[in-house]
Design a protein around this nucleic acid. Structure first.
Length: 485
DNA sequence: GTAGGGTTAG
């Protein structure tokens, strides 16, 4: 930047090379907009290099509208600029638009390369759409079936779509594996509830001579915490620095807080938080809050919730959690207090939403939303299943019912949870034997978890539910999480 | 003889 200013002062006119170079070091949105202005003034906007750099930088600042405008105003495009705009939407969690652009790109006659396909795979991964992922896989095969980066992206896609069979198969087929391949598998197995397999894979990784890094260790500790392996987790946490030379960061401390908290060692967890070197952040406190909920420690829960709200005052999830915890211990005045605070701050509860992919179309179910064309039929089916499941031991777990002070008490709020609707819809429309795969925006409640377990057994169906942090594989009356999540 | 853009794991 300094040299650019010096250059202009010396009367030398910057050209497209100057601008695409200086854009690399652009570290603020106002500066980016200024540079964009001077590019326009200098009449250098038509250069594809300058354009793609601008698009990329706008996207890094979350300015998708500016990125798209810059893209659409181009007369000529090339493969890289297409990759840039597709990547922009992928990285900003707008997989839908990324896929639309990918279609547009193909229609314009461009052939995808490694960068296109990794972005598109990453978009599909974010949406957890397995059938779409398989379609992209075909494009990958046409491009290059031995590419390491694409192989890794495929592994991640299958893991995040909850199909470990596919992930394992692709992994064994890879001719070359790097630390990302191993870490993807370890994390994928752990998140899908196959903790022991994840730890076994770590041993295989070490035996093969690959060295774990920071992210690999996150996966290992995540596996330990979700399998309740307290001692093993402690072992890896202590040895990661001495043996592997990896300094524990927030994420590792977070896993340890989770590990101790789940195991009921709440005081140990608090001690760790107060002593952790990077200092706790929102995620750390939220983790502790989750553990307080599992162990019904309302006092500590209130403390943790307030630390979360110090750092993120509009976090509706935390208010809901806190209110749930108070409700579970019959502290109705406190429930009301939380509700009042939420109303005062105008914080809205995030509605639960579940998606299911049927014939490459996405069907979304939202609590209290009856816009699905077949909602009445689905509700009737849910009721039928509930009746039949009661005969095999299904009892409502009412500790998950939020007191609804806004009135309009639902006949049975648990019946309306979006995942129940999505699962039942899957049973109605998917061919017999096909795994039902659901993606949802908030974590599954105990009642829906039991519902899914019993239903999987009664209907002899595999059900996979992906929530924001992990997966549940329901099969034959049990879940891969071991009821520990 | 010299300068510039996009992609994978928590």
């Amino acid at each position: 930047m300094e040299f650019l200013i010096l250059m202009i002062r010396n009367g030398i006119r910057p050209n497209m090379f100057t601008y695409s170079s200086v854009l690399r070091s652009c570290n603020g949105l106002p500066i980016l907009k200024q540079i964009h202005c001077s590019i326009t003034k200098a009449g250098l906007e038509s250069d594809v290099f300058v354009r793609s750099s601008l698009i990329d930088k706008y996207s890094k600042w979350g300015e998708l509208q500016n990125a798209l405008t810059t893209f659409n105003e181009m007369e000529t495009s090339d493969l890289i600029v297409w990759n840039t705009i597709i990547g922009a939407f992928t990285q900003n969690n707008n997989g839908d638009e990324a896929l639309n652009l990918f279609k547009r790109m193909k229609k314009s006659g461009f052939m995808s390369d490694q960068a296109t396909l990794t972005s598109v795979l990453s978009a599909v991964t974010g949406m957890a759409l397995l059938e779409l992922g398989r379609q992209v896989h075909v494009h990958v095969l046409k491009y290059n079936n031995q590419d390491l980066i694409l192989g890794n992206a495929l592994l991640d896609m299958y893991c995040k779509c909850g199909s470990m069979e596919d992930a394992r198969f692709e992994f064994t087929k890879m001719v070359e594996k790097d630390v990302i391949s191993w870490s993807t598998m370890i994390n994928g197995l752990a998140q899908n509830g196959f903790s022991h397999e994840a730890l076994k894979m770590f041993q295989t990784m070490e035996a093969s001579g690959s060295k774990p890094n920071y992210i690999t260790m996150v996966g290992i500790l995540f596996a330990c915490s979700h399998a309740g392996l307290v001692e093993k987790g402690r072992f890896y946490f202590e040895k990661m620095e001495t043996i592997y030379g990896i300094k524990p960061g927030r994420e590792h401390y977070g896993c340890m807080v989770d590990l101790l908290g789940r195991a009921g060692q709440l005081n140990e967890a608090v001690k760790l938080i107060h002593n952790m070197e990077p200092g706790p952040d929102v995620v750390t406190w939220r983790t502790l809050l989750g553990a307080c909920g599992m162990h019904r420690d309302t006092g500590l829960a209130a403390y943790a919730a307030n630390r979360v709200l110090d750092l993120d005052p509009d976090d509706s999830g935390t208010y809901s959690l806190l209110s749930n915890i108070y409700a579970n211990t019959q502290r109705w005045e406190d429930v009301e207090k939380v509700r009042r605070t939420m109303r005062g701050k105008n914080v809205k509860k995030e509605p639960g939403c579940s998606w299911i992919e049927v014939n490459k179309e996405i069907h979304a179910f939202i609590v209290r939303d009856d816009s699905h064309p077949e909602i009445e039929k689905i509700m009737r089916e849910v009721n039928c299943y509930v009746k039949r499941l009661r005969e095999v031991g299904y009892v409502h777990d009412t500790s998950f019912v939020l007191q609804d002070v806004e009135g309009e008490q639902m006949e049975d709020p648990l019946l309306c949870h979006s995942e129940k609707l999505a699962i039942v819809y899957g049973l109605m429309v998917l061919v017999k034997g096909k795994t039902i795969r659901i993606r949802k925006n908030i974590r599954i409640c105990g009642d829906c978890h039991l519902f899914a377990k019993l239903l999987a057994k009664m209907e002899n169906r595999n059900i996979v539910i992906r929530d924001p942090i992990r997966y549940h594989h329901f099969q034959g009356g049990v879940c891969s999480c071991g009821d520990y999540w």
